[in-house]
């Protein structure tokens, strides 16, 4: 994210209220993630809040250091540009910090067994998985370029393919996990795949809107954009369930 030029540009082109809203969503979202498998086993929700704030502090300071190292922020730049560039990076960097701790820190496996028993927890993981992958792609111009080049039928096919892949991975996780659930195809499909794809699509729509990518587009074009970005988003979301 720090090395994506569209992200630097977003720093000064993004609508300030939308960016503020994104940062506002950040703390509760990280707290939820931390609850599901963050730094440590927390008894109290306040400890999870503390963990997510620590993640934000670490992420912001790292972002500032790296941006300064790349000479992307300097003292001569106006405040607006510097603040924008940092604020845009805070969101992905903080999610990265929490997720890295999930992966690298110990004791995650045991906790994840508990997580799998919570339906809402799984949806949150799907959403964060989609968010984390889409964040890398949503700001780039390639998404728009691909969407413009695709016909309606290409869009339909990519949606079907995304759902099929999501289901395949969800199904795989479901039956290789520690607890084998005997559920019908339809139940898994409706409860996880369809709902999961809807969550992924909504998350992506929100991201595209935040980055101003949906401004001035027709409904058809917005849907094409969401379909294009939900293709990697859905796969990311599905694997997030597998890995997290």
């Amino acid at each position: 994210m720090l090395m994506t030029m569209e992200m630097w540009w977003l720093g000064f082109t993004v609508e300030p209220f939308r960016l503020a809203l994104l940062l506002f969503v950040l703390v509760p979202m990280l707290t939820g993630l931390s609850r599901l498998g963050g730094f440590r086993n927390n008894l109290h929700i306040l400890d999870d809040v503390a963990d997510s704030l620590v993640a934000i502090a670490v992420a912001t300071i790292s972002a500032v250091i790296v941006l300064a190292l790349f000479n992307l922020i300097t003292l001569e730049m106006p405040v607006r540009e510097v603040m924008g560039k940092i604020a845009v990076q805070m969101f992905p960097a903080a999610i990265g910090a929490i997720l890295a701790q999930n992966q690298l820190g110990g004791g995650v496996r045991d906790k994840m067994e508990e997580v799998e028993s919570s339906y809402w927890g799984e949806l949150l993981i799907l959403a964060v998985g989609a968010l984390f992958l889409s964040l890398n792609i949503a700001p780039t111009e390639e998404v728009e370029l691909i969407a413009y080049q695709m016909s309606v039928w290409h869009v339909v096919i990519i949606v079907v393919l995304s759902i099929a892949l999501l289901h395949a991975i969800v199904y795989m996780v479901e039956f290789t996990g520690t607890e084998v659930r005997v559920e019908s195809f339809l139940s898994v499909f409706v409860r996880f795949t369809v709902v999961g794809y809807a969550v992924v699509a909504l998350v992506n729509l929100y991201l595209l809107w935040t980055f101003g990518r949906t401004d001035g587009l027709s409904l058809h074009e917005i849907m094409s954009l969401v379909a294009v970005i939900s293709f990697p988003g859905a796969i990311g979301a599905a694997f997030a369930r597998l890995i997290l």
């Binding site: 209220f17 940062l23 506002f24 997510s52 704030l53 502090a57 912001t60 604020a87």
Partner: peptide
């Protein structure tokens, strides 16, 4: 203490953006 730093950073970023907006 680190969490407090995080709070200040998020709050400052949001406050600045809203003020600027």
């Amino acid at each position: 203490a680190v969490a407090a730093v995080g709070t200040v950073l998020v709050a400052a970023a949001i406050a600045y953006l809203v003020w600027y907006g």
